[in-house]
């Protein structure tokens, strides 16, 4: 093996090594440029959010490199003084937290039943749930707006939450069922023989063991609901609208509203980005669980 290695290496002439060194340099330069390219759009909006409206109107955000004194937190201050924005921010929280918790709780109960219980028709029901994974939300917009209208929750936080719970459940059940199925059966059987009820088993064995999967799911559901605009655009009214909807209303007059939109977008991005950086691993494993394994 070693002999082979050296013979292969010996074949690489000096010229080849220089060529590969140059290629490595070009590669690094290319990736550096691409990385910058990926950062610049966000950076531009970030800088804009810290500029005075008159500066924004007068010149591009890149002018701060020559005039750093332009930076100010004025836009953020005046934005957070607007009642409809702070109210919308709270609505986002009031929508996201319950919608996430409900999906995690209801989803893990169902996932547990599908993974660890024996009952008639189990596989059929589970396949039906898997079939629902790809149903587009668009199909439900019209029917649920009529249904919610009839029962009086159209234009309320509850309606928005319910919608997100419904469309979050298939993925939740799928992800958690697959994870719970890997819990050793012997563990569950032993506990059952000891006389533990399913509820106790669920709370004391399955939930603690399912921690990582539940974390992945929770992060996804949280980000999905927090970042949603379409559902809230239709199902909330002016009193219950989240931040995304409140900001969207300012987009039509884009260039005149940058001092609202730029800081607003960043306030709405702070939490998702914090979650992303804090839970990178769970985030990535959630992506994997949904696609390839």
């Amino acid at each position: 093996m070693t002999a082979l290695d050296t013979s292969v290496r010996a074949k690489r002439s000096l010229a080849a090594r220089i060529a590969s060194g140059a290629a490595g340099g070009a590669l690094r330069a290319f990736l550096l440029v691409v990385g910058l390219f990926w950062l610049v759009p966000t950076f531009g909006l970030l800088v804009s959010s810290f500029r005075d409206p008159t500066d924004i109107a007068a010149s591009g955000w890149w002018k701060v490199f020559t005039a750093p004194a332009q930076l100010t937190t004025k836009s953020y201050q005046s934005l957070l003084e607007k009642d409809e924005i702070t109210h919308a921010l709270f609505n986002t929280i009031w929508i996201t937290v319950p919608a996430t918790l409900l999906v995690v709780i209801i989803g893990s109960m169902a996932g547990y039943a599908f993974a660890c219980m024996d009952f008639k028709g189990r596989d059929g029901w589970f396949m039906a749930v898997v079939g629902l994974l790809v149903v587009p939300v668009q199909v439900a917009l019209i029917p649920l707006s009529e249904l919610f209208g009839k029962i009086g929750i159209f234009g309320s936080i509850i309606g928005v939450i319910l919608f997100h719970v419904g469309f979050g459940l298939p993925f939740a059940i799928f992800l958690l069922r697959n994870f719970f199925a890997e819990i050793p059966r012997e563990l569950l059987e032993a506990a059952r023989l000891d006389g533990a009820g399913e509820a106790r088993l669920f709370a004391t064995v399955v939930l603690p063991l399912g921690g990582p999967a539940i974390a992945s799911l929770g992060i996804f559901q949280f980000l999905w609901v927090w970042n949603d605009m379409l559902v809230a655009l239709i199902f909330s009214d002016s009193g219950s609208q989240p931040l995304t909807v409140a900001l969207q209303q300012q987009v039509r007059q884009f260039s005149g509203n940058i001092e609202i939109l730029a800081p607003g977008a960043f306030i709405s991005m702070v939490i998702p980005l914090a979650v992303f950086f804090a839970f990178q691993r769970q985030f990535v494993s959630g992506v994997m669980a949904g696609a390839v394994k």
Partner: peptide, 29 residues
């Protein structure tokens, strides 16, 4: 689902489910 990360995961072709197919429980539920 347009802005959905979760859906991105959930919506696509599925990974193979874990091969550990639940066996029949001794007691049954």
């Amino acid at each position: 689902m347009s802005s959905s990360v979760a859906k991105a995961g959930g919506a696509g072709a599925l990974p193979p489910a874990p091969s550990a197919t639940p066996r029949k429980s001794v007691i049954g539920t």
